[in-house]
Design a protein around this nucleic acid. Structure first.
Lengths: 215, 215, 215, 215
DNA sequence: CATGAATGAGGATTCATTCAT
DNA sequence: TATGAATGAATCCTCATTCAT
């Protein structure tokens, strides 16, 4: 069933709960990522979602609840994307890392807003959100990190993989920014740069040794 | 001269402008870091600074101005700390890098609030603040790039110094950020982690090779 | 449906937008006229309108917007009142002028607040408000000028119609303003004063000659 | 004795009270006329007066006091200007009126700010100011009006001269505005227009009769 | 289910006014 | 006398949240 609203636009009515929730979450992620948690207004979110404010509250609760729901959904998506990437890789740890990185950057590139909300906004707000985020992040990261731990019993295995993952992510983001200023490079080339840095280290790089993705 | 205010606390009076400005900035950094930019209220800042709100406005302008002033001051402090660290190092590039990283993490460890404001809060708010940050980042990247430039004449390294510097700075930021949520490690330990990652690479690490600071 | 609020007063609820807007404008005109633009507080306006402040903002925007809306509404009302007065008069130009003046002073007498806001407050604030007023004035002057145009073909009169119209409108405004502080006279009496001044001139008046409305 | 202040400007010190008061009143009239009573800030007034705020309070009291002092001074000035104008005229009432008008418009033209404060601002603020103004205005006006009353015992003498004065003033102001759009006219010509309107009236003007200033 | 109407509460900002030197 | 430093008290405005239909 459909109706024309005051502005003449067509607004679908009585959609199933699932669809409505998706609409709202999509809108919320968009607005939260653009404005930040506090500056985002429930008014704007409901407008972008093309739904009335009371419905937003009915479906997803308070602003805090809504934000938490965004984090949960996006974190899950990210996790699944990485899991899919890793699982299609072979056995060699460097190749697994390579696939994990590619999956991760693929996600970040494709869902900028999601990543914004997850990385910037959630950690900027203290308390429950940061916690929620930390939990999710650790699960996701351990997916990629686990492969390193399985690889050997050496010292490396006892590294705090969490910390390394954080460093990796930061390096990747920063490199992505740098990429914006050097568009002549291909995506693969940039990814390879990062792989080189983290796999070979400067120590080897200065000796002219480079890591190569498998053919 | 001192007086007891209504609440019985002692409040210094008629301080020179310079002193008041420092008080205010200190309070602002503390509050912004704990609450985030939007959730921080000028009321709380003025209370923490133990001064009335109108003085905050008289000395440092609007909330935006105040936030920008915080960012500028902390960014300057941080850059000076790093520059000092690097300059006291010897010639070997890895040692220079090591000192730079230690200075960086030392700063972050000592001034958690400063870093929290600089990195998390400033980047969560868009617009002019992000710009201030980008400037600082650019300076940091130049510093690192210059340092790496000296590393070797090898094609592989000198060719991509910029990209690697960007990646390293990003990794450092991100790791520092991660550290905020995992304060159990020492600054030196965290610095060593990053040093190992970028200097040795995972490739060596999984073979049990680690970088060691010179005795 | 009606409810008693905390103070025990009866407050109508869920009125349509149109009605609320009128309530608000009425209250705003009253308060602006009594306190002046700056001294009037949005709090008082919303109280007088018997509505919460956020609704005032939702319906009519900022204080400036609200003031402008008041001016527009009252200016329109006034111009319509005068036009109606003039149009019901016969052909003789003096009689038309007389009816126009009577309508004008009738309006001022009946809607003191409106005039107070229009003339005193709006002109005391500079900028955009004065502009709105100038528009209204220009319309009023044109109306009078057209009327005087019909008066005669004599060179002396038709040549300077514009100037005389401007002077007449100014005199009317000023006299109305004066009347606000001397409410003891009737609207007709004030109108007659002005009619005598502009139609007969002091020269005749000192000779005891007066203009009389037709029986 | 003189000192250079922070900005390097020279500020005279320890001036006699009289001079300081004039400085302050000049500044206050300027600022009140430009901003309006409420929008004018004591800060700006003290800056324009090139004196510190506490001095303003020491010399002329509260903002209300200061405003009242402005009104009093400017009203007195205006009164004296008109008195001087009238007293140099001869006996004929029309000539006296003519001189009075010329003196009045001379003052308004020369001291725009003073007139702004007196006419617009003082009457826009209710209460004590309006009263103060009315008193002053009535005294000043009666100067000009008295001549008409002395002229004859006719009906005209019992006119509310106050009301007529208000009309005159308004007509004059409006004509001055009109003049701005018709700069080809001389000052005398415009003054003569007004004299014609009020002395002859439209009734005579349409018959081609005009008033002429005496040679 | 869906929404236009409504508000309590709180935050940024400014200003008249006064100390303490 | 003269002033930089300081503040209590408003004022405008916005937002998360909820009725009543």
């Amino acid at each position: 069933m459909r109706t024309n609203d005051a502005a003449g636009r067509v607004r679908a009515k009585r959609l199933p709960r699932e669809v409505r929730e998706r609409q709202i979450l999509d809108a919320a992620v968009e607005v939260f990522s653009q404005r930040g948690y506090h500056a985002a207004s429930m008014d704007e979110i409901s407008e972008v979602a093309d739904i009335s404010k009371p419905m937003v509250y009915a479906y997803l609760g308070s602003k805090e609840d809504l934000f938490a729901a965004c984090i949960r959904r996006e974190a899950t998506r990210l996790m699944e994307a990485i899991a899919a990437g890793v699982s299609e890789a072979g056995d060699r740890p460097d190749v697994q890392l390579w696939h994990g990185l590619r999956a991760f950057f693929g996600f970040v590139g494709e869902y900028r807003d999601s990543w914004q909300v997850l990385h910037r906004q959630a950690s900027a707000q203290g308390g429950p959100f940061a916690q929620e985020l930390l939990d999710m992040r650790r699960r996701a990261i351990s997916l990629v990190a686990a492969l390193l731990m399985n690889t050997s019993d050496s010292e490396a295995a006892s590294l705090h993989t969490d910390a390394m993952a954080a460093a990796l992510v930061g390096a990747g983001e920063s490199l992505a920014d740098w990429w914006l200023d050097h568009p002549e490079e291909s995506a693969g080339a940039v990814a390879a740069r990062l792989m080189n840095l983290v796999w070979m280290g400067f120590g080897n790089l200065v000796d002219g040794q480079m890591w190569q993705p498998p053919r």
